[in-house]
Amino acid sequence: MRADRLLSILLLLQVQQRTTARELAQRLEVSARTIHRDMEALGAAGVPIVAERGVGGGWSLLEAYRTSLNGLNEAEVRALFLAQSGRVLNDLGLRQAADAALLKLQAALPGSARHDAEHARARLHIDGAGWGQSAEAVPLLPAVQAAVWADQQIRMVYRRADSTAVERVASPLGLVAKGSIWYLVAAVDDAVRTYRVARIQRAEPTGAACVRPANFDLAAYWEHSKAEFRANLPQYHATLRTDATSLEYMRALGRYARVLSAEPAGDAGMLRVEMLFEGEQHACEYVLGFGSRAEVLAPPALRALVLETARQVVARYEQPSGG
């Protein structure tokens, strides 16, 4: 609708200060000619729009023409700009609407509040897809969060996966929520590292300010870190025989089991599926979860393991109940 487009143009000009008709046309998916007509309509309505020609020119608003959103404190601004999950919004088809809403809010915020919003978005990233773990206690999350907001170094005692405790002086760069699991991204010894917040046993401010690496992007770092984690997982290749319905579920199930390819297996409705697993035991448990709907074709060792495990299950259930 034209009214929505005119409002979007107005808000874009407030956020970006100056933009060209071509940029607006691309952003709003209309022609440059339509944008020029919209600018005439805004001008006729009394909006002080200025057109500058030449290199570096474009459309802009007079500096005095601003809107203001009053009554929001710093915590409320942070909450508004962080209360979103990219994956959920994409699944619901609401990503574009969410971006438009944030643009409107950003345009209406006064300068100091806009800084608070940008500060929060640079330091907290929400990743809604969990690793599969249940929620865990994070008693030191408030202390870590305070250090992240204040850009202040902390001295922490961290329990590694092998249960050994180490002491580190860390410059907190941001927090990431991976499903129900919290991670701290911090600079330690000139390297950016990731720490599970539940394993932090002590966290105390040092009084020193942390220095953020130039152009550090928390979301980009996290995506790169996830890709490296997946690439370094043990990879066990197996070939299965299954039906189309089970294949769809396999693709949705996902966790550390990846469908590489699928092609007709020769039988009506059956498919030959190439997959990657963490390891042999994981592949065995995965296949058994599909019962008679999945059959291992290769490797022979996995087929033998599934058969032997199935026999043990049958033997267990043939015995009288221990209860």
Rank of each mutant, 00 (worst) to 15 (best):
F216L: 02
H224R: 02
L247S: 07
Q17F: 09
A238Y: 00
Y158W: 09
G46R: 07
L69K: 05
V15I: 13
A113T: 03
A129I: 15
V314G: 01
R37P: 01
A25Y: 09
P110R: 15
L184C: 05
V166S: 02
W222S: 01
L61R: 04
R160M: 10
V148A: 08
D267P: 04
A238D: 01
A137V: 07
H237M: 06
L89K: 06
R53I: 07
A301Y: 04
P320L: 15
R230A: 10
Q14C: 02
A113G: 07
A135D: 06
V188N: 01
Q153E: 14
V314D: 01
G132M: 12
V176Q: 09
D38A: 15
N232A: 11
I126M: 09
G93M: 09
S134N: 09
E263Y: 10
V176F: 15
D217E: 10
P205Y: 07
H115G: 05
I126S: 03
S261L: 06
G269V: 15
A21W: 00
A203N: 03
Y195E: 02
V144K: 03
G266W: 14
R196V: 15
D243N: 08
I154R: 06
G179N: 02
R293C: 08
V306A: 04
R255N: 03
I9P: 00
Y65C: 09
A143G: 10
Q84D: 03
V273R: 07
A137Y: 08
M156W: 00
A79H: 11
P320E: 15
G128F: 15
I126G: 00
S85H: 05
P213C: 11
Q17D: 07
A129G: 04
M270S: 12
Y65P: 00
R33Q: 09
L233N: 00
E167S: 10
M1W: 05
R255L: 08
A135W: 10
G111S: 14
Y249N: 06
D190A: 15
G291H: 13
A3K: 02
R255T: 05
A170V: 08
A150F: 01
P48W: 14
L42Q: 05
G54F: 14
A177F: 12
D217M: 06
A161S: 06
I9W: 01
E263C: 04
L247W: 10
A198I: 12
E223C: 04
L69W: 13
A315V: 02
Q16L: 03
V138F: 08
L13W: 09
A231Q: 02
D151I: 11
E204H: 09
K178G: 02
A97K: 08
L12K: 13
S85Y: 03
Q153M: 13
Q96T: 15
A75K: 07
T20Q: 01
V211G: 02
A75W: 07
V148S: 06
